[in-house]
């Protein structure tokens, strides 16, 4: 499948890109050309004998921000990780049901897991940049996908950092170690690194919980900007954050999806008592 990026493909890209700046550093390998709706049906997930998710059904729309809320241990991260199959790395994890993105079964045998993850990016709770330069952090994924051309890589670095709203901050020190950045900058670099793979969907697992309010604000703004081009699924413990930025909110409790709807509605007019209890702070 990686053959998709042979040389012809790359040169074609460059020809097109002369006219169009944004496309200049395109990697291709798109799985989900038209839309990236996620449809989850009857999802049950087990860690060995423990069932972490119970019959979850939900629809996540393209170019929207969906937040997942719920008390600690209710399975938010687990759900997120089953969308890009990071759960495959966990010993004893077993999945029933289906997850489809744009109509393609995520767990089907002929879907290459690498290509899937390239299309479904992930940002973690704690910033985890590689111990390399800023530049190398961002070119890491494209390079492994076969992009060798220096100008193309430069272009990817620039557009990724621009999209992550930190190009101006770091454009003069791309060779600096990513470790020397502040926590908030590191997290935005991780977002830029995620964007460098040119995903369609971005999964974020409490991306701001380790950050100060200013950095948090920056990342929230960033999410709102990115929404035009990506679907974002975000786990958050911060109700205000969910309210501020998300279009849809879904509430989880003990591995079950209790309620999902437009964010305003869920917060102002929850259908389920448990949702109301949680939002008004009566538990969790």
């Amino acid at each position: 499948m990686y053959k998709l990026f042979n040389k012809n493909e790359n040169t074609k890209n460059r020809e097109i890109s002369k006219n169009n700046k944004v496309d200049k550093g395109d990697i291709c390998l798109d799985l989900f050309k038209d839309g990236a709706d996620i449809k989850i049906e009857n999802l049950n997930l087990f860690y060995n004998k423990f069932q972490a998710l119970h019959n979850v059904n939900m629809q996540i729309n393209d170019k929207e921000i969906t937040s997942l809320i719920g008390p600690s241990g209710c399975g938010k991260s687990t759900l997120l990780k089953s969308i890009n199959r990071m759960n495959d790395l966990v010993n004893g994890c077993r999945i029933e049901g289906t997850i489809e993105i744009a109509g393609r079964d995520v767990y089907s045998k002929d879907l290459d897991i690498g290509v899937l993850r390239k299309n479904v990016g992930m940002v973690f709770q704690k910033p985890n940049p590689f111990a390399m330069s800023i530049y190398d952090n961002i070119t890491y994924a494209p390079r492994t996908f076969g992009v060798k051309d220096k100008t193309q890589l430069d272009e990817i670095v620039r557009t990724s950092l621009e999209k992550a709203a930190m190009w101006d901050e770091v454009k003069d020190c791309l060779g600096k170690s990513a470790m020397s950045l502040s926590g908030g900058q590191q997290q935005r670099l991780c977002i830029a690194r995620c964007l460098s793979a040119q995903p369609k969907i971005i999964l974020m697992d409490e991306p701001t919980s380790a950050l100060d309010p200013i950095s948090t604000g920056k990342i929230e703004d960033l999410c709102l900007q990115l929404k035009d081009r990506f679907s974002i699924v975000m786990v958050t413990h911060n109700m205000q954050q969910a309210l501020r930025i998300s279009d849809k909110t879904s509430f989880f409790l003990m591995g079950e999806m209790i309620e999902m709807g437009n964010t305003r509605e869920v917060f102002e007019n929850p259908k389920d008592n448990r949702t109301e209890d949680y939002i008004t702070g009566r538990f969790g």
């Binding site: 990071m86 790395l89 690498g114 993850r117 590689f130 890491y140 994924a141 492994t144 460098s196 793979a197």
Partner: peptide, 12 residues
């Protein structure tokens, strides 16, 4: 977390 970051990018 570094391994996870790499795998999450789709890298083998």
């Amino acid at each position: 977390s570094l391994r996870e970051a790499s795998y999450a990018l789709g890298v083998g």
